[in-house]
Structures are given as structure tokens and as C-alpha cells.
Amino acid sequence: MASVADPDMHIMFTKTIEEIHSKHLQAYEEIVDATTDLCQSHEEILRAAVASCAQKCKDNEMLFETVHTYKRDLEHKNMSLKEKRQAKSEIQPDTRRDDMIQKIEKLRNEQDVMRDVIVSQNKANKKRIKVLQQAREIFQDALGLEIRKIQGELVQFIFKHINPVDDDSVYIITIGIKEDGLYQIVSSDPPLECVPALERRLKETNNLPAFLANVRKGFITQAKTVK
């Protein structure tokens, strides 16, 4: 049995401590990298939302200015009609004024629709960011989930701790976000038979954390059947 005073024993102990420390540093770096990628993805989504809102506001300002111009023209026209009424007992209907009123009404309706679209887009962007944050908090640390943005609007969710025989083996589901804000399943590695049903459920509920939980269950069931 090696003595505590044995120099070789001291070297072995020091080497073991250094290896453990190195593994901890590597794990910490992986967590920091994953968190950085997620933050960058959130920042890109927010920047796109802000740019869209800024453009919509600019368009609204132009619409408001057009409406004000029509209002000023209408006021001048009303003054002119008032003078003509004083000079004549009967006047013909002013079709131009009616057309202008209709145009102003149309512009108001378009502005209301555009405002609703902006509000809806902002809500959708905030909801997607909140869902991604919830998914990260629920799965990343406890279940060995890694979230990785690969290109455009595609995001990979990489699962570990699935196969008890090979704990480090990875299972990947790739998801895209369409223009209407709905999620679209791009691929599954290895292929998962229940993906079409899970995708339909995701489109109905828009509940990404629940979808990821069901995907993980599907991978676990598949790993048990494949020995």
C-alpha cells in the first residue's frame, strides 16, 4: 500500500485533481457557448422585430401626413362651398368632396389594419422569445439539451442522456420558424416515427416545451427498442 509521503503518490494525486479541474472547465465552456448562441439568436429576433416596427411606424407617419393633407384640402373645399351657398340658392352635389371623404375613410381603415398587424407581429416575436427561454431553462441543464442555431431561422435541439447503454450519444431534432410564426419540423436524427403527429400538435398549441418533452420521450422509447 502506497504511503502518503510517497512522491509518486503525490504526483498521482495532483494529476487526478488537474484532470477533474480540466473536465469541469470544459463543461463550463460548453455551457457558456450554448448560452451565448441562444442570446445571439434572441438578439437577432429582437433586432428584426425592432426594424420591422420602425418601418411600420415610418409608413404610419406617411399615412397620417396624407390624411392631414386630405383634411386640409377638405377644409378649404368646405370654405369654398360655403361661399358658393351664400351666392346661390341651389348647388349641385360636390362629388369631389364625397370622393375625398371616401379616400380619407379608406386611409383610416388601412391604418387601423396596419396597426393591428404591427401589434400582432410584436406579440408573436415576444411569445417566441419567451418560449425559447422557457425551453432552455427546462431542458438544457437538467436533461443535457443543447440548443444550436445553424442557419437562417433553423434551430437544432440536441438531446443527450437518452440511451442508458451510451449516455453520450446524441439525438437531434431540427426546427424552423415560418413567416407566419408557426414552427416547422425539418428533420429528426435518428428518424422518429411520431414526429408528424407531434408536429400537428405543435401547430395546434404552439407549445414548444411540451413538444420537446414529447420528442425526448419518443427518442427514449426508440432507444429502448433498439439494442
Rank of each mutant, 00 (worst) to 15 (best):
D189E: 06
Q40C: 13
I129K: 00
S80R: 08
V215W: 08
E43D: 10
I45S: 11
I177S: 03
A135G: 09
N214C: 14
M79C: 03
E30H: 07
C57H: 01
R47T: 14
D98G: 11
E199S: 12
M114I: 00
A213M: 15
D180M: 03
D73M: 12
D168N: 10
R96E: 14
K71Y: 12
I147E: 01
E199A: 14
Q86K: 12
I158E: 03
R115C: 05
Q40F: 10
I31S: 06
S80Y: 05
E204M: 06
K82G: 05
Q156R: 12
F157G: 02
Y70P: 02
D141N: 10
R216F: 02
Q134R: 09
A2G: 09
R72N: 08
E153S: 14
I175F: 05
K106N: 12
V117H: 05
K203F: 03
Y171P: 00
C53N: 06
F219S: 01
G176I: 08
K56M: 05
A213N: 13
K58C: 00
T225F: 15
V4T: 09
A213L: 11
H21V: 04
R97L: 15
E44H: 13
Q151Y: 04
A142M: 06
I45C: 09
R200Q: 11
L202M: 09
E43F: 15
A197R: 15
H68C: 11
L212C: 04
L63P: 01
R216W: 02
K106P: 01
T66P: 00
S120T: 13
N122W: 00
L25Q: 07
L208R: 01
S187W: 01
M114V: 00
M62H: 07
R115H: 09
Q102M: 10
D73S: 13
E90C: 08
P164W: 04
A87P: 00
P190R: 04
E65M: 13
Q121A: 08
F139Q: 02
N206H: 11
I20V: 10
P190T: 05
A5D: 13
C57M: 07
K149Q: 14
L202R: 01
E61N: 10
E44A: 14
L143W: 04
K126Y: 10
Q92E: 10
D6K: 02
V32F: 05
P164N: 11
E90Y: 07
L208Q: 03
D98A: 15
L81S: 05
V131T: 13
V170M: 13
A48F: 04
Q26C: 00
